Amino acid sequence: MLAFILVFLLITDLPRLINRKNPVEEIQRDSVVYQKPLWQAMSMDALVHEKDPELIKYGKELIANTSLYLGPKGKVRSISNGMNCQNCHLDAGTRPWGNNYGAVLSTYPKFRGRSGTIENIQKRINDCFERSLNGKGLDSNSREMLAMKSYIEFVGQFVPKDSIPAGSGIWKLKNLKRAADPIKGQVAYEQKCVTCHGQNGEGVMNADGTAYTYPPLWGVHSYNVGAGLYRLSRFAGYIKANMPYGATYDKPQLTDEESWDIAAYVNSRPRPHKDLSKDWPKRSAKPADHPFGPYDDGFSEQQHKFGPFKPIEDFKKAKNKK
Rank of each mutant, 00 (worst) to 15 (best):
E50V: 07
K51P: 00
K51I: 14
K51M: 12
K51C: 00
D52W: 00
P53H: 10
P53G: 12
E54P: 00
E54Y: 05
K57M: 14
K57R: 15
K57Q: 14
K57F: 04
Y58W: 12
Y58T: 11
Y58D: 04
K60F: 10
I63N: 02
A64V: 14
A64D: 14
S67R: 03
S67K: 03
S67W: 02
L68Q: 09
Y69L: 10
Y69T: 09
Y69I: 11
L70H: 02
L70E: 06
L70D: 07
G71Y: 05
P72Y: 04
P72C: 08
K73R: 14
K73S: 07
K73P: 01
G74V: 09
G74I: 09
G74W: 02
V76G: 00
V76C: 01
R77T: 15
S78W: 01
I79F: 03
I79V: 15
S80G: 07
S80M: 11
N81H: 08
N81Q: 11
N81I: 06
G82F: 07
G82K: 06
G82E: 07
M83V: 04
M83E: 13
N84S: 12
C85I: 11
Q86C: 06
N87C: 13
N87A: 15
N87L: 03
N87F: 07
C88K: 05
H89K: 12
H89Y: 08
G93P: 08
G93M: 09
R95K: 15
P96G: 03
G98H: 06
G98D: 12
N99A: 15
N99T: 04
N100R: 03
N100E: 12
N100W: 04
Y101T: 03
Y101E: 08
Y101K: 01
Y101A: 14
G102K: 09
G102F: 07
A103M: 12
V104E: 13
V104H: 11
L105W: 01
L105R: 14
S106G: 11
T107K: 14
T107A: 11
T107C: 11
P109I: 13
P109N: 09
P109E: 05
K110G: 02
